[in-house]
Design a protein around this nucleic acid. Structure first.
Lengths: 166, 166
DNA sequence: AGTACATCGTTAGTGGGGCTAACGCAACAG
DNA sequence: CTGTTGCGTTAGCCCCACTAACGATGTACT
């Protein structure tokens, strides 16, 4: 629910956090997710990359050239934000944007050789970061942890609108 | 790492998400945390409350009156944001702010009777929301899940600056 | 007593992420 | 040929985590 980073200003004496807060799964998730985000952003930042870059490159690598809209669906990045991400990737020559001759509404996005290289570097970094993130867990526990997360996620994404039939 | 909500505009055919993405714990955490946040915000919103309200009230309930700075440390809310939160809570008569006679820099924050009532309602709502959030898990699994989260969190909060001694 | 430093509450502002709205254009279905 | 749907793009909103700086007060040191 909250961060635990210590502001330069606001020194961390260890004042106790109330029990109800400490136990809430929502709060734990929020804090760890924040920590994970920090780790990832910082790590990728060292390669002048952001997590969206990874998502897009990974998607292109795995499924080949795609339209922006499809990429958007695969990665979960909003169409509106995809524009900027692709601009950044194009600047760095990791992708190419070309109009689709078969459907002139579309852009076809292709990963370049340098893009593939970059992706490999990112993958390496992410592996390391995950090692840090999950450091206290044995590899069996890690496996089980991500499985649990996946189950939760599945439950909540299938659980779409599901409007009462009435 | 990304959201999965489907924009009204951008319909969700089920386009597949690349494997590397689906497996990354950081992404799973991010998505579930987002979902959890949505659930919580929406649920508390129904009582015209926000998660910070809960954090502050719970803290006051458990430790009694405190200064803003201490509350800030307990809850993880930044001193700068605490101001606004306390304003909202004071508007609703859930807390009272009074200058500390013993240290004129401080405000002493006290929870009111109505604040306690409100806290009880919030607790109830959060319990329900967590039921929904963790629905696919058995109670043993929930227990273990939160324990794992706690372990992870502990690891990363103890792991403070810890600068190389060199 | 005087000076340096820390802490307190507060205001302002930054940057990113998630998300909505609306637009012009192209494709397609009737 | 008309209405609908999908596309890429621009703009903007709100929330959250976080930083910076300020004036006022308290504490410690000499």
């Amino acid at each position: 629910m909250t961060s635990r980073a210590e502001a330069a200003d606001m020194p961390n004496d260890q004042t106790e956090t109330p029990d109800r807060l400490r136990r809430r799964a929502s709060r734990l998730l929020s804090l760890i997710s924040a920590q994970s985000d920090r780790l990832v952003s910082e790590g990728l930042g060292r390669l002048d990359a952001r997590k969206w870059h990874y998502a897009v490159l990974a998607s292109l690598q795995e499924y080949g050239p795609d339209s922006q809209a499809t990429l958007s669906r695969r990665t979960g990045i909003y169409r509106s934000d995809m524009v900027g991400v692709l601009n950044e990737l194009a600047e760095r020559d990791f992708i190419e944007r070309a109009p689709d001759p078969e459907d002139r509404r579309r852009n076809v996005i292709t990963i370049t050789t340098q893009g593939r290289q970059h992706l490999r570097r990112l993958d390496k970094i992410l592996d390391d970061l995950h090692d840090e993130l999950l450091a206290p867990l044995t590899s069996a526990e890690r496996e089980q942890f991500t499985q649990t997360l996946t189950r939760l996620l599945d439950h909540h994404t299938r659980q779409a609108p599901h409007p009462p039939i009435s």
